[in-house]
Amino acid sequence: MLIQLEKIEKIYEIGTVKVPALRGVDLLLGKNEYVAIMGPSGSGKSTLMNILGCLDTPSGGTYTLNDINVSEMDDDQLAEIRNREIGFVFQTFNLLPRATALHNVELPLIYNGTSAVQRRKQALEALDQVGLADRVHHKPNELSGGQRQRVAIARALVNRPSILLADEPTGNLDSRTGDEIMEIIEDLHEQGHTIILVTHEEYIAEHSNRIIRLRDGLIERDEAVHK
């Protein structure tokens, strides 16, 4: 199994009040799966995504990623796991505004110490893969929303991570551009990438093969999508 969650709990302490966000989530995810995580706000969707993305650690339970127990790692180790294993695609793109597309895509490679030549080669490949070979020296404000999201996808791919974690990737895009982005994600799945999609849009979730619905910090339903 690529991902193995066992009784994952997350409790936030706000002052003296303990607010449980996840209350024992069990989940198995294989390589090359394409799952959507859905749920209303307050269901623990974002918390689960943060834990899956190694941005946060659970309060209880174990998270095994690629046979490594990541639930008890410190911040530096988590940073390395994020760098190596996870590619993020955010709703708001989260590109560095003053950097070119190329530099934005190179960024993950900078933090794992890839040499400049190798970095440039990999970044150009990734940009080519998302169809932006002719826009590499543009800054984010010189690109359209769809193009920005494609730069973000290239950045997520550049390090060849185990998981692509997309959090409402079409949320800030019009429906036509959104469809284009979903197509790219689908292509990536077909190429063998494992994709976790977090969304609240039913029609976006239906691109995936498996939908996991959360409610009140627990998995409510976990079902295959029939196409």
Partner: peptide
């Protein structure tokens, strides 16, 4: 701050 968040998300450690 936001930029630091982005850098951390893609693998920058605190010391970086």
């Amino acid at each position: 701050t936001h930029e630091i968040g982005i850098r951390m998300a893609i693998g920058a450690r605190g010391r970086d």
